[in-house]
Design a protein around this nucleic acid. Sequence first.
DNA 1: ACAATAGGCAAGCGTACGCTTGCGTGTCAA
DNA 2: TTGACACGCAAGCGTACGCTTGCCTATTGT
Lengths: 96, 96
Amino acid sequence: MDDVFRAIADPTRRAILDELVDRNGQSLFEICARLTMKHGITSTRQAVSQHLDVLEAAGLVESRREGRFKFHWFNAQPLKAIVARWPEPRPKPDQS
Amino acid sequence: MDDVFRAIADPTRRAILDELVDRNGQSLFEICARLTMKHGITSTRQAVSQHLDVLEAAGLVESRREGRFKFHWFNAQPLKAIVARWPEPRPKPDQS
DNA sequence: ACAATAGGCAAGCGTACGCTTGCGTGTCAA
DNA sequence: TTGACACGCAAGCGTACGCTTGCCTATTGT
């Protein structure tokens, strides 16, 4: 659970999730290309690969190796626990 | 929006939100006491104060000064945009 | 076979972050 | 008035994080 919060703390990783939602099952190179094209992120392939490792450790991304490609899929389930954690408390009283 | 992700990335700040949900409108000292009692967090008052600044910058906490006390209230609204950001994409195909 | 492609591993670097420490400010009570 | 209490400000420190660089492995195509 801690890993999920850490994973979505970085803007580049959030952009990766955005791109996987837009097109699921991308390879590492596809993700790199989309990050530079659509988000202006010029990070190296290794940097993106490390981000994907963090996302995968958080359960937000699943991957599968096929030949020389490694495809990545988004998994939204860990995010749902975030909002469920903090229910609405008694509201703040107005100053009077 | 970026501030929200950064704010909930830290476990101490998440514990602060937990305590504010449990009892809304606490002062800084109350929060410090609860963190040590219920979470084993021994951070200084200044550390907790800085955490509250981050939470307030993210819109997750509102505060009001009354006399020599500063009371804090939780605001869950910024959290709702998180789950709404990443809708469920086409699912990952099973290997066959 | 051999070159090109897709990706992995590990070390190093700079910065940001969480935290402490020391001191200052304002409020309340005796 | 004076001391105690609740909190703020700012500088410094150590660590973790994001990123690069260099080199290596494996798969594909010609």
